[in-house]
Design a protein around this nucleic acid. Structure first.
Lengths: 220, 220
DNA sequence: AGCTTAAGTCTACGTGCGTTGACTTCTTAT
DNA sequence: ATAAGAAGTCAACGCACGTAGACTTAAGCT
């Protein structure tokens, strides 16, 4: 028979220090709290003390587990997908719908709360912590660029990846950071339809055309 | 005859305190330094002390002039254009080229160093200082939305303004904050051509079409 | 049972920051 | 000539933060 020991803080309880009985799940609590704080407050304003409070824990424990604030950030902000695995899947298939598939993938990922916090946290942190900016640069410039170059056999793969990145970053900023309405509350399906053609042209459409985004038949 | 007194700091000079002789131009130096620091470092990491150092001035003088860090930010980050004046000019004219005109305007503004710092500073600050986020929300959601609704007589004016905003914000982030290549070094003309069709569709194109960004003839 | 290790708290150090108040020097208007 | 005010510096306060170290309690292995 398994027994669960529940830790209840009490003012009468003299033992406040030391290990808590049973499986505490504290590490996960810290992880969740950190993701929440980083996503909501940005890197600088999120504090170890704040994370500890939200997790119901002493600040020193956060350091004990993760070493430092920067290491905490890196440990907690791991992408919920692998670009090297996801991109080829998206780029394969009918070329005329690659933008739609990418839009579905991106918006879909961002609907998942944990993933949303990770992506928002990383992009937000990129504005203050250079290490995070490097992550974004690496992610959007290097990791997806290879996939695009290989998967689409298109010229200007780097630039195309940059353009897609800029729209994704802007979307996250507008929808989850600045929270501008009605975009912030737009249902996923509507959002997908709104941005899919943009991705489509950035990925496989003409980049120098002055026209109104109407590529030659068969080009997109 | 006008005489210019040049202040040269010297270790032999005993008078280090008090007003400096002549017109010092100190206030402008502080303004420039503040814009530079806010744009380069973001709101939180830009410090009054750092601004003062770059301006060659005591930190207390910055406070003396501007009152507080937040007031300094607001005083210094004034838009280099009036949306209420600029947007109608952009939206008027041939409807099929409204996206191009907007792209030319936006990219053109951002080529000017001072304007670039202001816009970058505001967007960057929006990720940490709620007051700055409010500025962005106001600017992109309210001020341009009226112009679009009136100037284009189109449905979903708010959403269209949001979408344009998201691409502008993402562009600034990718090009000036994260600095991802080759986008960061892309010549203005190429950038304009790359994003004009996106603006075009966001402004007057169909938003629900699943197609590849090829609107019905005459619609865009 | 006993020993090692992991989980957890407490206290406190040092740093950098925004901001304040007292003081000094120069400009300007009377 | 002089007084008022603007421009400018200096020193310091108080606060919040990241982090370190000593200590305590529970878990796990032999």
């Amino acid at each position: 028979m398994l027994t669960y020991t529940v830790w209840v803080a009490s003012s009468k309880d003299r033992r406040r220090t030391g290990r808590r009985p049973g499986a505490s799940g504290t590490r996960e609590a810290i992880t969740d709290a950190a993701r929440h704080q980083f996503a909501e407050l940005g890197y600088d304003r999120a504090t170890i003390r704040g994370v500890a409070t939200e997790a119901g824990v002493d600040p020193a424990l956060v350091v004990h587990f993760f070493g430092s604030k920067q290491r905490l950030f890196l440990s907690v902000m791991t992408l919920p997908f692998e670009p090297e695995e996801a991109m080829p899947r998206i780029l394969a298939g009918r070329r005329s719908e690659v933008g739609l598939r990418l839009a579905q993938f991106a918006v879909g990922i961002l609907e998942e709360p944990k993933a949303q916090r990770v992506v928002t946290g990383i992009i937000r942190a990129a504005t203050s912590e250079p290490e995070a900016a490097r992550m974004v640069r690496d992610l959007f410039a290097e990791r997806v660029v290879g996939a695009i170059a290989e998967g689409l056999a298109v010229a200007d793969a780097r630039l195309r990846a940059n353009l897609v990145s800029s729209q994704v970053i802007g979307l996250v900023m507008a929808r989850y950071v600045v929270r501008v309405e009605p975009l912030a509350s737009l249902p996923p399906e509507a959002l997908i339809k709104a941005i899919a053609p943009t991705f489509q042209r950035y990925l496989v459409g003409p980049l120098e055309a002055q026209g109104a985004g109407a590529p030659k038949p068969g080009a997109a």
